[in-house]
Each structure stands twice: as C-alpha cells, then as structure tokens.
Amino acid sequence: MDNSIWISILGFLATITLAFVVGVFYGGLVRKVTARIQNRVGPPFYQNFFDIVKLYSKTTAINHGWMQHLGPAFAITASVTSLMFIPILNGQGDMMWFENLNFKGDLIFLLYMMVFGSLGMALGAGQTGNPYSAIGVSRGLSQMVGYEIPWVLALVAIMMQAETTSITGLIDYQNANDTWMMFESPLAFIAGLLAMLGMFHYAPFDVPFAPAELASGPASEFGGKYLALMMTSGAIMAFVKLVLFVDIFMGGASNLVMLLVKTFLLYMVPVLYGVVSPRYRTEQSIRYFWGWPTAIGVLGVLYVVFIR
C-alpha cells in the first residue's frame, strides 16, 4: 500500500484539528477581550469548548424538512473544503502536515467556495419557516453583496500585480521579492481589510444576527447539534479567512507561532472595531461597503494597472 495516502489522511485530520482548536480558542479569547473592554471579568478562555461539547450532547428533535437538516452540513462542508485549499504555512518551514490540496485550487475557486456555506445555511434557514430566519437570511445575503465587491476588487488588484491566481503563487511572489503584499499594494490591502470587517459579522456589521431585534437571525430555529455544527463551522471558517488574509497580504507564516501571532493581530481589527460600535441598519451597512471600500479598491486596481 502506498504510504502517501495515509500521510494525506493524517495531514487532513491534523489540519482540521488545528483549525478547530485555534478557531474555538480565538472565539473564547474574543469573548474575554470583549468582557475586559466592558469592564467585566468575562468567561474563561476555554468557555467555547464547553459550549460546543454541551451542544453536541443535547438531543435534537426539530424537524422542518430535509433542507433544514442539510443546511448546517453544507456550512461545515464549505468550511472544511475551503480549509483544504489554504496553505497554512508558507513552505519555508516544515509543512508536510498541512499540504493537503494547496496547489490545486486558486483564489477564484476559493471565492466561490467560501460563499457556498452561507448559501447552504440560507437554504436551511429558509425552510424552517421562522420569520426571524427569513429576515436574517435576506439581510445576510444583502450584506454579502455589499462586502464582496471591495473584497473581489482587492483580490483582482493583487492577482494582477503578482500575475497569478494561485495562492501558493502569491506567497512565492512575496517571498521571492522579500516583501509583503500589504506594502506592495497598500490600497488593495485597505479595501480588503474593510471588506473583512463585514466578513466577520462583528458589530457594526452584525446585521444578519442582530440579537436584540432578530432573536439570532438565521440560526433562530436551530438548536442542539445543529447549533454545535454551525459553531464548529464558524470557528473553522474564521480560521480560514484569517489564514487566507495572512497568506495573500502578509507573506504567509513559516511556523505555527508566527501564524498564531499574525492571525491574532489581524483578528483584533474587526473585534476591537466591533466592541466599541453599535449596529448599522441593513442599508447603511451596504452603503458603507459600496462607498469608501469600493472606491479604495478601484483605486488599488488602477494603481496596479497604471503605476506599477
């Protein structure tokens, strides 16, 4: 039997474990940071592990139809698939364990894959028939139309600059020129960062979940194991977004410690901005993304085309 298959399977499991543990751990840290800023003690940093174990051990006797059962499954499928295409480490260190499918997909494929989970959740939440879910889904999809535009503009700018669409190609470009993409095309970085604020759904962009007005939005009819699946998928997806951002703008990371430092610093941007902000209305949120972030994104593309 060929040994490489077993190494691939083990690497797959190692990657998922790493993403899950880091994502859930970051979720707990975010709750702690929020609490400290609000002058509270806050839950312990491992609180989210308790939450997920408890939710997995709850019974789930809700049945609204088969799409409702498939929605969370779609979400976790999308998270794990996206994770497989992200280079966790940048290849200068020991990256045998995290190689997975890094060289087979490119940024454009990943753009579609990352949206797939939200669409699956939207279908699942739509079937529950809860009015809060329906409102939350429509808000979430509207907001996605908002932040996808500056995000795609930022990606187009850096893809044109490095003349490749492959993520590993982008990392190699940065390593070969001994620079980071955030300094090479700063306008694209700013547009991407502003789009990332919306991607993480922290305040002021927590429009779809809006705990005070929409119960919890799309998730309001999902309890027990479904909620646990959604929390797992959310944790993995947060890790995916952070690592992707580090890969394409900050030159990747050569070892795990560097990866944790970079992703944590990056994660604090939406979190700290969110803690001190109230919530936008839906149209304010979309107008925000179609304003300055899109303008900066267009300028970033023009900068790459005409100046460099």
Partner: peptide, 22 residues
C-alpha cells in the same frame, strides 16, 4: 448579565430563542 454582576463568568449567557436555550 452586565458589568456589575457579570453572570458570564460562570458560563451563563442569554439566548434569544427557546430552540437554543437550556
């Protein structure tokens, strides 16, 4: 629930819908 007595220390957290609550 808020800053003064901070029940979140004990893992107690508000939930908006009966489906998610314990």
């Amino acid at each position: 629930m808020t800053s003064r007595y901070d029940a979140e220390r004990f893992g107690i957290r508000g939930m908006a819908t009966p489906r998610q609550a314990d």
